[in-house]
Simulated assay, not measured.
Amino acid sequence: MGSIDHGFDGHVNGGLNGADHTFEPKHPNPSLQVTADHKIKMVEAPVHEPGQGEALIHVKTTGICGSDIHFWKTGRIGTLVVEGDCILGHEAAGTVLKCGPGVTNLKPGDRVAVEPGVPCGTCYLCLEGRYNLCDDVQFAGVYPYAGTLQRYKVHPARWLHKIPDNVSFAEAALLEPLSVVLHGIERAGLSLGHPALVCGAGPIGLTALAAARASGAHPVVITDLEPKRLAFARSYVPGCLTYRADPSKSPEEQAREIRELFGAAEDPYFAPRTVLECTGVEGSVVTGCFAVRRGGTVMVIGVGRPVMNNLPFMHISLAEIDLKFINRYKDTWPAGISCLSGGIISLKELVSHEFPLEKAIEALTVCSDLSNGSIKVQIVDDVEQAYS
């Protein structure tokens, strides 16, 4: 299972634009691929010359996302279906090796973070600035577009963001999940000094916890099923309050107990104005709807089932609760880089496991089993590489 297959399908292993001119690299290019029949394998992938407006990068760090596990285990996320071999990975940072024609914002040796979604740039949504909703987005690691779990990757220079020296590759790779949170917080409208509830203490939830505190929300409560993750949350963001979710209790009962932590049992004024729901689990979404203050906002950041049947429609309606959703992010990398470089938020504590690229299968396996205690698993590649 861990051996490298030297065959490849050029359709899925190429750059986002499907370039077919190969580049001779100094090192091999092992890649972690998922198959349509729910398997993962290490495959030697071709390295493409950067075309017009593109840059070839040496991927130094890629974080494993829950979506990578979903594509492996279930073969799909909603309408996104794995129909053939595809290189996984989209939380990435690396170094520019070579620039294609027309690239003026980058040069070889630049350290960059990868914004993985490449929109069409011409549809009405792109023209409105809502490029995250583009129907024709080419997203790294989503079939048929090759992801970043490989040593070398061609990517449009427009979607590569230079990072300062005080931001590590590990931190820069975390800009992708941070971007998800930043987009959610912007749409939710967190307010300084107002209470907030974060549902879920996974990587996104913990990032949301840190971002909510940095945004001035207080008090902040975070929920999860796993006591170890709640203990980590208390050490990661001192002063936060935690609630262990209990599926044996109804959402209404859990919401009442959560409200007590805010001091809202007797005065509902102090109930959370904003809920950042980071699990996508139906029961957690419903709990958030009952926990939020009347007139408040429940922002669903987590990815859940295609259909939810038990949302408390009349409660949401009569309480004028804004139930909102996000799709990835837009224009978040510059703000995220400023947060990390300026010390506004720290994410490096979330990295619990690191694996070399050659052990990517082991990394994905560890990440897929929550009993291993992983929070954020990253795959790193430290081989020396000359710039051209």
Rank of each mutant, 00 (worst) to 15 (best):
G2Q: 12
T287F: 15
R229K: 04
N166E: 04
Q150S: 08
A208M: 05
F270C: 13
H11R: 09
P50T: 01
H353M: 06
D135Q: 12
W159K: 02
E252Q: 06
A188D: 12
V380A: 09
D5C: 07
D110C: 14
V154F: 07
E226Y: 11
D224N: 03
G216M: 02
G18L: 13
L125T: 00
C289T: 07
E115Q: 15
T242D: 09
L175F: 15
G239E: 07
L190V: 04
R234Q: 15
C126F: 00
A19W: 10
F355R: 02
F355D: 03
G14T: 11
V351K: 02
E320A: 11
L190G: 00
E128K: 13
I163H: 00
L323W: 05
A335H: 07
G84I: 07
C65H: 00
C289Y: 03
P177N: 05
G78V: 05
W159N: 03
M299C: 12
P272I: 08
E282N: 02
D322G: 10
A255F: 13
K376P: 14
T35V: 15
H58V: 14
V142S: 08
D9S: 08
D224V: 00
L318H: 11
L370I: 15
W333N: 01
L125I: 01
V181N: 00
H161W: 00
I258Q: 04
L178V: 05
A265Q: 15
C134K: 01
V114S: 06
A271F: 12
A211D: 12
T79D: 08
S31F: 11
A335F: 14
I337M: 08
R305H: 09
S388M: 08
R158F: 09
E358Q: 09
C99Q: 00
Y131F: 06
Y269S: 15
